[in-house]
């Protein structure tokens, strides 16, 4: 644990120290993400998010499965959009990219502990996590970056 912390911290420092576009740094671990109020400014990885990949991860039921709870008109080719959460149309105009990152990483830090939206890059899970998912985040750091990049394209 201590080792991973150190590596992650080092990763974060490196990220800060190098200019944008730097590659091959370790992703920031889920326990090392820094929230400032409702924002996470530092990208989780050194590879900028790819909106096309993010679009796929958003819809994929084994990845983001965001359509389970959110309507998204930009994806009208997909059947059945849920309405447990807010429609995401024009979401990029309501939240800054660093806020969207915070929402996807751990929505509870933004909406409060009662929200039903899962934390997609958080280890704050419920009890009795199934063996296959223990100690794992729902999305990888890169998938979060990709989805955030996709969300920033959702303008009215």
């Amino acid at each position: 644990m201590r080792d991973t912390c150190k590596t992650a911290l080092l990763g974060a420092t490196l990220l800060l120290a190098t200019t944008a576009g730097a590659r091959a740094t370790e992703p920031i671990g889920p326990s090392d993400v820094t929230f400032v109020e409702t924002a996470v400014s530092a990208p989780l990885t050194g590879t900028p998010g790819n909106p096309a990949e993010g679009r796929k991860a958003f819809a994929n039921v084994r990845m983001g499965n965001c359509l389970a709870c959110h309507k998204n008109s930009e994806m009208s080719e997909q059947l059945f959009h849920g309405d447990v959460g807010t429609p995401l149309d024009g979401v990029a105009e309501r939240w800054k990219p660093e806020e969207l990152r915070a929402i996807v990483v751990n929505s509870k830090k933004v909406f409060g502990p009662e929200t039903v939206m899962p934390g997609f890059y958080s280890l704050e899970a419920g009890v009795d996590v199934a063996e296959a998912f223990k100690g794992k985040t729902i999305l990888t750091a890169q998938q979060v970056e990709d989805i955030v990049a996709y969300l920033t394209t959702l303008k009215n």
Partner: peptide, 28 residues
């Protein structure tokens, strides 16, 4: 009311807080 699993949801998250809403194609 206990939240379970990686998705961190309780029975109440779906059937109490959100009944009447759709989760994908399922009317809760």
């Amino acid at each position: 009311y206990t939240r379970t699993g990686q998705l961190n949801l309780s029975c109440a998250s779906c059937h109490e807080q959100n009944n009447g809403k759709y989760i994908r194609a399922d009317h809760l």
